[in-house]
Design a protein around this nucleic acid. Structure first.
Lengths: 113, 113
DNA sequence: CACGTATATGCCTGTACGGGTATACTACGT
DNA sequence: ACGTAGTATACCCGTACAGGCATATACGTG
């Protein structure tokens, strides 16, 4: 079974997820909004479902897919250590700019902390 | 050129990144710590470098690789909308638990906000 | 200059994956 | 019961990619 990272490596799957982040959709709706063929949509949804990214309920012939918000947690957790590094990097850049920039110049809005 | 998502889809590349998150390393060090063959390490580093995830400097015959902290920003940004959904989901779960849980029971530590 | 160390690259191979087309399956309406 | 809408799956094909091995390249040391 592919990892969450491999699942979101595919651009069309990311597009589907972004779409579902707005609201739930049927297969046909995804097909039309993303201009993909129906089998392609179904296959990607299969992968997304197996990986726990989406869930579906049945409405007559339609299957309505919605996001499973907990699914991106694996990615979140892997990313956490780097986030810390990144914020340190931003801080260092800020200090650097503070040193290089004349105090009297036109201010750009400060980052909130 | 592959997207950041495709780059981090590969488990060995994620391992390399995690390693470099600790501190910079030479190719040989990565090779030994991750028990990969040297060409494999070099190839993954090539991909990581082309995608801006790492940078290298030369120390005699060695190439020392270090993380580029800005590189994961693309992933961060794509993830942002889902993070909001996820926190809403956690909140909803909390409210649900609050309703279901007798006030007098043994308390578990509250989540910090 | 010869040799060893450290790293990069070229070539080959197996394999996994995404897309397309056709088809199967299921539920609804008439 | 039949036709149709909606979705899933099977099969085929092309391709991209990761790994392994061999080799090239660059630097240091004697």
């Amino acid at each position: 079974m592919p990892s969450a990272f491999e699942v979101i490596a595919e651009p069309n799957r990311r597009a589907i997820l972004s779409l579902l982040a707005g609201s739930e959709r049927s297969v046909g709706e995804i097909e039309r909004e993303l201009r993909m063929t129906q089998p392609a949509v179904s296959k990607h949804l299969r992968v997304l479902r197996d990986a726990g990214f989406v869930e579906s309920t049945i409405d007559a012939q339609r299957r309505v897919y919605r996001l499973n918000p907990a699914s991106l947690q694996e990615v979140e957790e892997w990313l956490a250590p780097f986030r810390e590094l990144w914020s340190r990097h931003v801080d260092a850049l800020e200090r650097h700019l503070d040193r290089m920039t004349p105090r009297t110049q036109t201010r750009t809005p400060r980052r909130r902390r």
